[in-house]
Write a protein that binds this DNA or RNA. Structure first.
Lengths: 187, 187
DNA sequence: CTGAGCATGTAATCGGTTACATGATTCC
DNA sequence: GGAATCATGTAACCGATTACATGCTCAG
């Protein structure tokens, strides 16, 4: 029933259910919501997707003149858009999850690398994961007890779980890499 | 120093360090190794990447006639390829990790969905993660005590950690979704 | 005066997917 | 007879990134 658009389009359409916005503001909203577990499109793509949603009749465009700053275009979801969104939500039995972890690629080829360089890479990964975990925890505090963010908060927990798993994995790897006797067991 | 090719190209170049192979066999090797934590290219892309590696002088192509089955082309990494690979491994400080989780997208918009449909989606996700975990555990048993697979085994642990985190998260979400009093607390 | 924020887009390119095309062998 | 495995690729398309282009306001 729903047109076959990429998930990204429906994600943006879904965000429009939170209210009328501009492409610019959508960019910021995405950066602090679905970017963490799905995808962060370039702004040029956001503008393009919005035009496409309008072309499909899923969103309505409205131009708003502003004094003292550039004019903006506001986008609102239409009735057709709501229908398309909800049939997409029902129909689609999840394309499978994708994890793309460049550090793992280096670890995989770790035998070809300088040991210390590899260790530094893994440490960097761990630092990044810790920082992200801290940001998520801060977010969690902010939205705690905020009933309208019930579903987003469930997704936030996924982020927390993921970062914790990354940190623990990095620790395991570092433990293995830092002892001098790795590779083959003693003869 | 290393040419600016996508990570996928260097991943394939790295796999060539394991020995001369055909595009076809590379496809199978990828499916059971880097596909799990990085990316699984379509076979058409594999063939294209191999041609590109040859064009850059990173791999050498050799055609082999076969009786009773189609001829094949074998690719081997060259000295230039090894140099490029190792400088890529050293230089590049990891483009950041990407997680694309379509189920999370549904949970995020869970308020727009039928509750039971959402629960089924999450259960499906959990089932898939359990199945993947079992496959990884089987793999772990197979490669245990196999010293030349030391680095791959480290990466395998990442997969295990990730699947376990997914399973636990799904359980948390199901717990929240299955009790009738979610959303706002009692007035 | 500089840089950040507001606000929108175009053009070119590239990474990656899908569909199509071919054809032999072997196993059930 | 049909499906799976071996083996390679082309062409078309689409999703996504990058670079480029513009211009005003406000805070430091």
């Amino acid at each position: 029933m729903a047109d076959d658009l990429p998930d990204t389009s429906y994600a943006i359409l879904g965000l429009l259910t939170f209210g009328e916005t501009s492409g610019y503001d959508l960019g910021k909203l995405i950066a602090e919501s679905i970017a963490h577990f799905f995808f962060k499109p370039a702004k040029s793509q956001i503008y393009a997707e919005l035009r496409r949603l309008v072309a499909h009749g899923y969103a309505a465009e409205r131009e708003v003149a502003q004094r003292d700053r550039p004019d903006k275009r506001l986008y609102a979801i239409t009735a057709r858009g709501r229908k398309a969104l909800s049939s997409w939500l029902d129909e689609s039995s999840a394309g499978s999850e994708t994890l793309r972890c460049p550090v793992a690629l280096r670890v995989f080829f770790g035998g070809l690398m300088d040991r210390d360089t590899l260790i530094e890479e893994v440490r960097g990964h761990q630092r990044a994961a810790r920082a992200q975990l801290a940001r998520f925890q801060e977010l969690e505090r902010q939205i705690a007890g905020c009933p309208e963010l019930f579903f987003p908060s469930l997704v936030l927990r996924r982020g927390l779980a993921h970062e914790r798993a990354s940190i623990r994995w990095a620790a395991e790897v570092l433990k293995e890499l830092e002892r001098p006797d790795d590779g083959e067991p003693a003869p």
